[in-house]
Structures are given as structure tokens and as C-alpha cells.
């Protein structure tokens, strides 16, 4: 069964806006791989943090359909305009807000979002490059590429509904295993949907969801069983063996 995603020739552009690249394609591939689950999930509200060219939110809207409502944010004013053009070119709609992560939405949108997608600025850079204007905001991630990711994760936790899912792009340098453990402490299970070795980057697309067993364990102050932890971490151990090709698992 094929599903429509955004077409590159219809994606708008601007010199100050990040164009769809391997990381964007990997994220959309993960959404496609998880399409059946997404359709069964019947999300009402979907959100993208940092929408850039609009390639990902447009693809999500095409995959899930217009029965859901979509909101997309970007700190770069050019990016929200370009996203608007990309959405229009595909005949789908998302509400756009020019803001830092989800500033202005956190109070009222708390616990309401069923799907969040994030392709964060994950590239390790000097700290003073983070939050600069224009296209740099699309990639500058500070120390280990974690500065913006570490701000986004608590926001995602606040906004996600009880059945909420988060799809996020990470780079091996971001220490994704540690991100998963951190999210596990907040009651989220996780799974790598796609891993991709490009010429320059080793990327993972991770899906997080609230796991009621983990949340109970957290409340009762129990530690996560070592067995589960091993299986979680073993997901990451396969990377050294991936050389020169990519492996998509669904």
C-alpha cells in the first residue's frame, strides 16, 4: 500500500531555510514505516517543532489525513512562510506559529497533542552558535548537539496526550541511548524505527510513547528491570556493524 508524501518539486525554499535532506527523508520514512499504527492511532492534534521547509509536516498531513489538525512551529520567520507555501502546494493545512519551540502553546496545549514530530538542530557546535538567526537555527545544537534537544524533550512531555507519540531524529553524537534512558525515567518506552548511515552522519529516528508500566514503576520508585534495560541498549549496539549501507526496520 503506497501513501502520498510531500514531493520535493513542490517544496518551497528560501536561502535562510534548511532544505529537505537525509535527516528529513529518514524521518518521513519512519512515519511511512509506522503508517498503519498512525492511522489506527487516530490522532486529533499533531505538532511539529521546527518545521523548516515544511517537508515533514506536509508529509505527515498527507499520511494521516485531514481529519486531524496540524500545528507547526519554527523560530525562523522565513521557515514558517516557506512551510505555508509547501503545505499550500500540496493542498493540505497546518496552523503555523513563529515561535521558539512551543512558547505560547505550553499552557493551553498541555496534554492535548497525540503526535509530535521533531527534526531538531542536532549538530554539535560551539554553544554560542545556538539560537542564531536564520538557517543556523536549523542545525546548531551546541555541546554534543544536545542543547536544543534537551529543551525540546520536556516540552514534548508536557504537550503529549496520554496516548501521545513522539518521533525524533538523533545523531549518534547526541548519545541517543542516554536520551532514551532519560525519557524512560519520565515513563516513556522507545524504539528505533529507522537508522541510516549517510556519508557524513549516523542517524536514528526514535519513537517514544508513554508506557503505563514504566509510569507505575516511576511512581512506586522502582528501578527499571535490568533485563529491559539491556534490550533497550542492545538496539544501539548494532550501529558499529552498520557500514556503508542503511538498514530500515519497521
Amino acid at each position: 500500500m503506497s501513501s502520498r508524501i510531500a514531493q520535493i518539486r513542490l517544496v518551497s525554499s528560501h536561502p535562510e531555510v534548511y532544505e529537505p535532506c537525509d535527516d528529513s527523508f529518514a524521518l518521513v520514512d519512519a512515519l511511512l514505516a509506522d503508517r498503519t499504527n498512525l492511522l489506527q492511532h487516530q490522532p486529533a492534534l499533531c505538532l511539529e517543532l521546527g518545521c523548516g521547509s515544511g517537508y515533514v509536516i506536509t508529509s505527515l498531513a498527507l499520511i494521516v489525513g485531514q481529519e486531524a489538525q496540524y500545528i507547526a512551529t519554527d523560530i525562523n520567520p522565513h521557515a514558517v512562510k516557506v512551510t505555508h507555501e509547501t503545505l499550500e502546494a500540496h493542498g493540505v493545512h497546518a496552523e503555523l506559529i513563529n515561535t521558539n519551540i512551543a512558547s505560547g502553546l505550553e499552557e493551553r496545549l498541555k496534554g492535548l497533542v497525540d503526535v509530535i514530530v521533531v527534526n531538531p538542530p542536532y549538530v554539535p557546535t560551539p554553544e554560542d552558535e545556538v539560537g542564531r538567526e536564520g538557517i543556523a537555527s536549523a542545525w546548531a545544537g551546541g555541546e554534543n548537539g544536545r542543547t536544543v534537544i534537551d529543551k525540546m524533550l520536556p516540552v514534548a512531555d508536557t504537550l503529549l496526550s496520554k496516548k501521545g507519540w513522539l518521533y525524533m531524529v538523533t545523531l549518534t553524537e547526541n548519545n541517543p541511548a542516554q536520551i532514551c534512558l532519560q525519557m524512560r525515567e519520565k515513563g516513556y518506552a522507545s524504539r528505533i524505527l529507522v537508522q541510516r548511515l549517510t556519508e557524513e552522519e549516523n542517524l536514528q529516528i526514535i519513537k517514544f510513547w508513554r508506557d503505563s508500566d514504566l509510569q507505575v514503576a516511576e511512581k512506586e520508585n522502582k528501578t527499571v528491570p535490568a533485563k529491559d534495560m539491556e534490550s533497550l541498549l542492545s538496539d544501539f549496539h548494532i550501529f558499529p556493524f552498520l557500514r556503508g549501507s542503511h538498514d530500515d526496520s519497521s
Partner: peptide, 9 residues
């Protein structure tokens, strides 16, 4: 502007 609120502080 053009339907997009600017909430940047």
C-alpha cells in the same frame, strides 16, 4: 501576518 502569529519575544 499572512495568517501566521509571531510569538517571538
Amino acid at each position: 501576518s499572512k495568517g501566521i502569529p509571531n510569538m517571538l519575544l
